[in-house]
């Protein structure tokens, strides 16, 4: 079985071709320019994941919002659930770059971290 997809791990967007057996096991990946492309193809066929980036309200800072991201990609289907948890939060300044804001969000094993200082 063959599946074509675009690698979204970086803006180059290499066109990937994935060879799978009947059980969905990935046999080979081609078209990738780097190692990350191979990992992306395997993930996309078994458990598609995405980075989540958003903002959280902050009191007492120079600006009202701090940008945050997941420390690693999370399962695609969990995005909205994570957004609901994040949108219930409000923080107080100061916040450091890279500070962990939420630990293990929605049991994904992934943290929400600040991507700026405020």
């Amino acid at each position: 079985m063959k599946k074509d997809m675009i690698c979204i791990s970086c803006p180059l967007g290499c066109p990937l071709s994935v060879e799978m057996d009947e059980s969905g096991k990935v046999l080979s990946v081609s078209g990738n320019s780097c190692k990350r492309g191979e990992q992306y193809a395997i993930d996309e066929c078994t458990n598609p994941v995405r980075m989540l980036t958003t903002t959280i309200r902050v009191h007492g800072g120079a600006l009202p919002m701090i940008p945050v991201k997941t420390s690693a990609p999370i399962p695609k289907g969990k995005m909205m659930e994570c957004m609901q948890v994040i949108n219930r939060m409000a923080l107080d300044a100061p916040i450091r770059m890279g500070e962990v804001i939420i630990c293990n969000i929605c049991d994904t094993g992934v943290d929400i971290i600040a991507t700026n200082e405020l």
Partner: peptide
């Protein structure tokens, strides 16, 4: 500063940063 999504810096830093992190 307003481009909070990731995808910056893969070529330059070899990691995927958000806009504010890249600028930082």
């Amino acid at each position: 500063r307003q481009c909070i999504h990731t995808g910056f810096g893969l070529h330059h830093f070899g990691e995927e940063l958000s806009g504010p992190e890249y600028a930082y």
